[in-house]
Amino acid sequence: MEVPRDALRAALPLLREIGDLKRVRTADSGTSPAGASMAERAFRRSWAELARGGDPHEVAVRAGAAAVAGARLAGVDGPVLRRCGLTADEAADVLGRSVAQHADSLGQSTYPLLRAALPGLAEDPHEDLYGVPHEDLHEAPHGDPYGASYGSGGEDPAPRFAAALCAQPRAGATCPGRPRLMVEPPESHGDHCWAVAVYGVLLAEAFGAEPGDVFLLGLGHHLHNAVLPDAGFSGEELLGEHLTGVVARLTVEQLAVLPGPLTARLGSLLALREAAEAPVARAFHAADVLDRVLQVRHHARAAAFTAEQALDDLDLVHPCAVSGFHRAVLDAAEAV
């Protein structure tokens, strides 16, 4: 089957870096006992904006721009830069430097599209990019993983299923008839769905798809797991003839909480995922399979990590005003 080989190869290093936002947390990540990842926070923000009637294309482009900027800046996003005293223009410039480092990984139309969205990511130092107070958005009470009091006014600005998906772990690698491969810590469904959504935005051009549609399909393709714990492919095989009905019923339940037009649009998109024929479905499936494989690759790299990689490849003791002293201490202690 023909696929855009060059575009996929060019995008892969960037997708790998963006995927690490599933594992980046900051001091204000208090939306669950373990702390929400940057990916989970972005997942909930996107659903909050969509539930308010936000245009999926605009939400998708902003989320894609924020993800590419975050690939190198991690938790240093627009509101953080403004909180640190930068003007809106200065903050947008910093975000732009990060995005520019990945220009070669992005399509000719996608790169300027993301660049144009950057000023909107740095407009207000006290609000997140969807108008929710920044301190409220990231500070649901500990022990409240479903976000009953999350956000301003005691109400979660995102649909309730968004918090449930962030609390629902992914199954990891499973195979019918075999024990599962357990890796710690597991990613959440919020992590995965966000990654698939933003990967889809970045791959949409290569597949001739509309970014907003791919983004929406990526965000919503596991709605049923807001209720159904993930037992992986092995569990799906055991559910057997019940699987299709269970997934359909639970998906309809979650769709019902969304505004009517959004329910209709997402419902029609979800129907396309059964095949890889429509451009939006092809971009979605490419993003989905890449995220699943990159997640496994991450655990493999982490398990094989050595001190030499940090010291030599990543220059852990990097040049600075006191690096000579640092090296003298390490040599004297025979620590390297």
Rank of each mutant, 00 (worst) to 15 (best):
Met182Thr: 02
Ala303Phe: 00
Ala173Asp: 02
Glu17Leu: 04
Val246Trp: 00
Leu243Glu: 07
Gly96Trp: 08
His126Ser: 02
Pro119Trp: 04
Ala164Ile: 07
Gly172Met: 06
Ala100Val: 00
Leu270Met: 09
Val196Cys: 10
Arg62Ala: 15
Ala100Pro: 01
Gly53Phe: 14
Ala69Asn: 09
Pro79Asn: 09
Val183Pro: 05
Asp213Met: 09
Gly143His: 03
Ala74Val: 09
Arg41Glu: 14
Ser188Arg: 15
Leu114Thr: 14
Ala51Asp: 12
Thr306Arg: 07
Thr244Lys: 10
Glu237Pro: 01
Glu187Leu: 14
Val201Gly: 09
Arg16Ala: 12
Gly96Leu: 07
Leu50Ile: 09
Ala92Lys: 03
His318Met: 01
Ala206Asp: 05
Gly35Ser: 06
His192Trp: 11
Asp331Trp: 07
Asp124Arg: 13
His126Lys: 01
Gly143Tyr: 03
Leu270Val: 08
Asp288Phe: 12
Ser268Leu: 15
Ala209Gln: 03
Val80Thr: 11
Thr251Arg: 02
Ser234His: 11
Gly120Pro: 09
Val201Asn: 07
Leu266Gly: 04
Arg265His: 14
Leu316Trp: 04
Asp6Asn: 13
Met38Pro: 02
Ile18Ala: 06
Pro13Asn: 01
Arg292Ala: 06
Gln295Phe: 00
Ala310Glu: 06
Gly75Ala: 14
Ala256Asp: 12
Ala335Pro: 13
Arg292Ile: 02
Leu15Trp: 11
Glu40Ala: 06
Glu334Phe: 07
Glu155Phe: 06
Ala328Arg: 15
Tyr150Lys: 10
Tyr150Trp: 14
Ala148Met: 04
Glu58Pro: 06
Glu127Ile: 00
Gly107Arg: 01
Glu90Asn: 00
Ala300Asn: 00
Tyr130Ala: 06
Glu155His: 12
Gly19Phe: 00
Ala167Arg: 07
Glu241Phe: 04
Arg16Tyr: 04
Ala209Trp: 05
Ser46Gln: 15
Leu202Lys: 12
Cys320Arg: 11
His189Pro: 08
Ala204Glu: 12
Phe207Asn: 09
Ala321Ile: 01
Ser46Ala: 15
Leu311Ile: 02
Ala100Gly: 00
Gly260Ser: 15
Val198Tyr: 10
Asp20Thr: 04
Ala74Tyr: 08
Gly143Ala: 04
Gly96Arg: 08
His285Glu: 03
Gly235Met: 02
Gly53Asn: 14
Pro176Arg: 01
Leu50Gln: 06
Asp230Ala: 07
Leu81His: 07
Glu127Phe: 08
Asp191Val: 14
Asp55Arg: 12
Glu210Met: 11
Arg52Val: 10
Glu139Thr: 15
Leu217Phe: 11
His298Ile: 00
Cys193Gln: 08
Ala163Asp: 08
Tyr150Asp: 10
Gly35Met: 07
Val257Leu: 12
Leu314Trp: 06
Pro79His: 07
Pro157Ile: 10
Ala310Ser: 07
Gly75Leu: 05
